[in-house]
Amino acid sequence: MDPNAHFPLSRRDLLIAGATSAAATAVPAATPFQPKPTTMTAAAAPMSVRLSVNGAPRQLEVDPRTTLLDALRENMHLTGTKKGCDHGQCGACTVLVNGRRVVSCLSLAVMNEGASVTTIEGLGTPQAPHALQTAFVKHDGYQCGYCTPGQICSAVGVIDEIKRGTPSHVSADLTAQPMLSAEELRERMSGNICRCGAYSNIVDAITEVAGAKA
């Protein structure tokens, strides 16, 4: 026997009916609130995307909605890249695309056709860590560690941007080579939030690797 035979209404139907009767009781003259009918749209056909991740060519079949972040974590199982806010505000999902730091949550996988992506897994390994990974350990540049992969990928981008002479909001002279000061690093790293508050140690770690005294 169908175990639901005595319950022709679904739980959702009951909730809607309850809300409607409650509204009708409270305000008899008013038109009961009608939730907008949900329009179901069929998922678009999966699309193929080819990209290079940490030096290895990858081909994926993804729903067009899949972000680069979800493709890395769910399709390629590279879970070093973290999902924090998923809205581009926290920087936990920072990776390097064609050598530039970006937030992978605000880019669709299909928008990265042919791109070269570097994640924390591609920067170093436990046996052969990247200099920034070593420096973050040495300087305690984290507590819980959740933001750390994004912090380190972002720092790789920052060091490159300073080397290329890119100015920042706090650079006194737009046309001069920027300083490698703590003030510059704090400004340039402001897109990476650390709720443990390891910021001063993060600045120390980056400063050591970038080759100047804080």
């Binding site: 730091r101 972002s154 100015p167 402001s190 897109g191």
Partner: peptide, 18 residues
Amino acid sequence: GVLSRALLAGASGQLRNM
């Protein structure tokens, strides 16, 4: 310079790259 300054005052390094 006002354009460089305005751009650098907005968003984050990652977002400005995108």
